[in-house]
Design a protein around this nucleic acid. Sequence first.
DNA 1: CATGATATCTGACTTTAGTCAGATATCCGG
DNA 2: CCGGATATCTGACTAAAGTCAGATATCATG
Lengths: 290, 290
Amino acid sequence: MLDPVSRVRRFNRAVTSAVGALDNSFLGRSRPLGAARVLNAIGHGRSDVAEIRDYLGLDSGLMSRLLRSLEDEGLIETTAREDDARRRMAKLTRAGRREFAAYEALSNAQAEGFLAQHSQREALLAAMDLIASALTRERVTLDEIDPRCEEARYCLGEYYAELGRRFSQGFDVSLSRDPDAKDMRRPRGTFIVAMSDRLPIGCVGLKGSDHGYAEIKRLWVAPAARGLRLGRRLMHAAESAARELGITLLRLDTNSALPEAGQLYRSTGWREIPRFNDDPYPDLFFEKRL
Amino acid sequence: MLDPVSRVRRFNRAVTSAVGALDNSFLGRSRPLGAARVLNAIGHGRSDVAEIRDYLGLDSGLMSRLLRSLEDEGLIETTAREDDARRRMAKLTRAGRREFAAYEALSNAQAEGFLAQHSQREALLAAMDLIASALTRERVTLDEIDPRCEEARYCLGEYYAELGRRFSQGFDVSLSRDPDAKDMRRPRGTFIVAMSDRLPIGCVGLKGSDHGYAEIKRLWVAPAARGLRLGRRLMHAAESAARELGITLLRLDTNSALPEAGQLYRSTGWREIPRFNDDPYPDLFFEKRL
DNA sequence: CATGATATCTGACTTTAGTCAGATATCCGG
DNA sequence: CCGGATATCTGACTAAAGTCAGATATCATG
């Protein structure tokens, strides 16, 4: 009665019968689901018609008709793309923005209503994060971003907080060598964030230097996204970027209180080397020649 | 970017777009979704037509047509109910059972495939249990069952395992006063299990005795179902059953290593009394007059 | 047994989603 | 500028789901 398969199936049943209740914001504004989905995709910043069609899995004929019906309602405008007049871009009109906001408000209200009904908020949210990450694993994208932007700062904040929990002596970022943002931007280095459906769930920094090697810094994976081999993917992306930038030697430091990190490095061609800096936190040092 | 509402909405998006992938067993046998859902409802033991219609939320006309199409395929038979010939009962034919088994096999295979893709199996399953319990909270039923049946034995096994984890000295059921099964069956007592979509998620025993009081025993709530006030509901049901049985005084013992239990008792009209037995595990004793 | 309520069934209808074969306009490489 | 490729649009179609008003049979009750 309690084998894993039954548990997965019970979850499926619960979710399929509740998902309508969880979010039926697509209904409730007397517009067919298809049109509502397209309107929401546009509202969420997708404008390329082919991309929306692909994202929603629609036939081109159907997509065309849905766009037309939204246009007839006065909610969107479509224009040919400047660089390729075969392709079309869609954007919301003022009325469309109002309508989109109404959908968003409905959806938010339903999510709030759901949360308000349940007492174990944090446990529930953590479980939801874990499942959402597992389900969207295939769709995790690795994006190079500026280390000072919101997503990067969020990741770094979580990373520092986790070090604080895991190091017995805590962690004070001001005592560590805080890398200069420009060392983690091209052409000296880069900063890569893993995004799952607009939520940052991991990051890694490649920090250029003038010492004949670059460093891997700030490798972090959100607790809800562990077990998806995301650390490996991030490291792989960072090493590829390093190769592109003509870097031939990589180093990193880590701490034995983070055993999963050490294991990852060892299993991906890094070899342990003696201490190469005077940062107070790390006690393990690695190097990899590209 | 990470407020609770966004997290709930991300989960919704992930689940709605993945639920097809999680279980599309309803497709894949060239039968419309509606008919497949009815067939599966019947296969899962629902036979009353009105009940199925209510469960699946179908219009009576539509339901009638779906039944007819399944009958035409030779998968079900319907008969008038003996006690009320207006109502109809549906049951699977031999061919229907084969077809249902094929759906079950598909669904199991998909659940297995899903599990095989993911490395953090236990964490994922625990998260799924938690969410399924939260979503189906409204539909938890409290059933009186025999304490020796499978569901009861499962609950007791989990209960003992949890005591073993939480008591610093471990827990050996043979050292504790194991109540006689017949003391937890009517008319001396009862055993109540909380079922969520066919999964037992909590239990409580009411044990009759000849000492002028009855005892509450084995109050347990599955970790995935905590925070839903299920303990309270179980206790309430046990007390109601005790009143029905003419019991006027209830006692129970517990351990200070289970603080949430003590808190529950105190907040529901129980008062602490001196030790009333020589069981080695409990160190807290309560009484309630009905 | 007459009467109103109830459960199911039937026929006629609408809406939505989806499919597919072309039509049209534009792009790109030679 | 030509010819094949590409993006979108249009028309004609189907399948599925759902709605609604009655028809029919049965039940409960006085």
